[in-house]
Design a protein around this nucleic acid. Sequence first.
DNA 1: GATGAATGAGGCTTCATTCAT
DNA 2: GATGAATGAAGCCTCATTCAT
Lengths: 188, 188, 188, 188
Amino acid sequence: MPRPRSDEKRIALLEAATRIIATQGLSAPTVGIAKEAGIPNGSLFTYFETKTDLLNQLYLELKGEMAAAALKGLPARAEPRERFFRVWQNWTSWAVTFPEKRQVLAQLSVSGEITAQSRAAGHKMMTDLAELADRSRATGLMRKAPLGFVLALMNSMAEATMDYMAQDAPNAKKHCKEGFDALWRMVE
Amino acid sequence: MPRPRSDEKRIALLEAATRIIATQGLSAPTVGIAKEAGIPNGSLFTYFETKTDLLNQLYLELKGEMAAAALKGLPARAEPRERFFRVWQNWTSWAVTFPEKRQVLAQLSVSGEITAQSRAAGHKMMTDLAELADRSRATGLMRKAPLGFVLALMNSMAEATMDYMAQDAPNAKKHCKEGFDALWRMVE
Amino acid sequence: MPRPRSDEKRIALLEAATRIIATQGLSAPTVGIAKEAGIPNGSLFTYFETKTDLLNQLYLELKGEMAAAALKGLPARAEPRERFFRVWQNWTSWAVTFPEKRQVLAQLSVSGEITAQSRAAGHKMMTDLAELADRSRATGLMRKAPLGFVLALMNSMAEATMDYMAQDAPNAKKHCKEGFDALWRMVE
Amino acid sequence: MPRPRSDEKRIALLEAATRIIATQGLSAPTVGIAKEAGIPNGSLFTYFETKTDLLNQLYLELKGEMAAAALKGLPARAEPRERFFRVWQNWTSWAVTFPEKRQVLAQLSVSGEITAQSRAAGHKMMTDLAELADRSRATGLMRKAPLGFVLALMNSMAEATMDYMAQDAPNAKKHCKEGFDALWRMVE
DNA sequence: GATGAATGAGGCTTCATTCAT
DNA sequence: GATGAATGAAGCCTCATTCAT
């Protein structure tokens, strides 16, 4: 029985990629990523067929982690607004806690490297979040707007809020609340 | 390096860069940009010292064009809401009319190629837009939030609105209005 | 390295190599050959010390098979011309029946991978064929030419005939005869 | 005006390729070819788009040179046989004089790197030679065999003759004559 | 022995920038 | 100044071979 392929190394590479890309951008050489992960350059390609493949898997990984973080510990029975606020807190908190991950995710999202398939898979991960938003929208002022539009607005406001929280950390909590209030005003 | 003679070629290169980068991303080779502009590859470097320089100038060019487009034909005396709406229309309309420019501007904004100086200069171009927003905020619900935050929210909502307008062109006008209403609700 | 157990796998690898090399050339990766043979990549090297070794063994295998095919069912007592024609038929028929084997043998022959030792062993396999030719030459027009030369001519004419038979399969039989007649005219 | 592309370097690269490939085979690294030509590795690709392109051009170059050599100084009015013999002498002499070129041409011919287009162009270069052969065939014993077949036979006999001449240089002239006589016997 | 992951040297090719003309 | 060939440092990826299991 040969050495089994270690998931540990896969993770190490993904984490290294996050760190390196945050610093050097998407054009960061694969050899640098491998080195950062403490792995020889050629081995990177036993875990990811191409650099593009690595980038796509990283995109999915980060997107998934973000969605999971946002929905963590969500109270089963509570007011929509309260539940939504909890998600909003989780979400922005994740972004502020892992600025590199957020930044890399942003870079990946605008790059031409992510396939339509990856994007679709990424969207699916946000499904639960979307449902939450949909319930809010349904009874509120934006009930006539398409769900996709509301989601996009919500997402972009989250981004702006995250930026501001990161930029002014001491008042992060306040900015989080303000962003949410603005969103809620817009939606309901 | 002395000032190059023909500003015409400079413009041609910038426009070519927009087209090429929209298609191929920021890693598009300079030789391709030069060819698209109908200019010999070596000559690109008489107009821009380095590729990074080209990218920074392109960033400013696009940012400036966008700001100018947004403020064009603004009625001097009118209700704040009306004036703001006019800007909103101009702005989103520009983005939908020149999707490549918007896309490239987005790519440049997240890339590590743009210097702090360029970013600062870019922000200055948005000054008038910012003032408009400030006046709205001052009397409204977000009066206590920092200007920067409100601007960021506004900007991100504009982005989301543009996305949706581009994606569903037949109803672009409607989405434009909806986005604005959401913004106004949030702000005032 | 001790003799490997299963000769079956050795054969499978050699056959797979023939198929793969016919398609992809001598630079075909060993992993592809192993996969084609349904054998794990690392195991290839329990059967062949190196890729070069595999290539040399394949060369001998094919050469041997070709010689055996050519001499198969040779009538013990018959006119030289008739015996020779029978060999000629066998030989060209083998080449046309197994174009991949012939092609790979040709590639191996011109490559620098085959050792002098393998070449010598390969020639030895053609001994009986050579004797046949020698007897023809001895009484004919080329009696003064060195045996090696006559063999070379014979071989090259066989190659040309095979090419033409493969290329124009419906008339293969005719071309076979024509090639032989030309050869006989030359030799006798 | 920039430095014009030097045909000298193109030639140098082709010649270097011949030398290197003769020694190391078709898998010889491009950097080695460039170095042998006294040219930096990157510059090779201003003269040849890819390694495959280099190989195809080399094939054509060698084929053309061979054809030109074969037909050089051909007496306008003379007996067919005499004219043909002259070509035969030229041809085999070229091969013996430039064994590397011949060897490389052989390697290229069997490799999968040469495109159908290159092969077609290569054949066209042999047109005059083919005509000569055709005239001989038309009146002789092989008048019923297809031209292509006769050419193939002729070519393969030439190869065998060249081999023998190279191998036994002191008697090269004799072998040349013998090969020709055999050919003539076969054809006429 | 059998397996297939691991390795790292090396191959082809790209490209920003320089510079001869 | 204008041009486009020249340069050579990297970059991505391949692959024969080894070796842990």
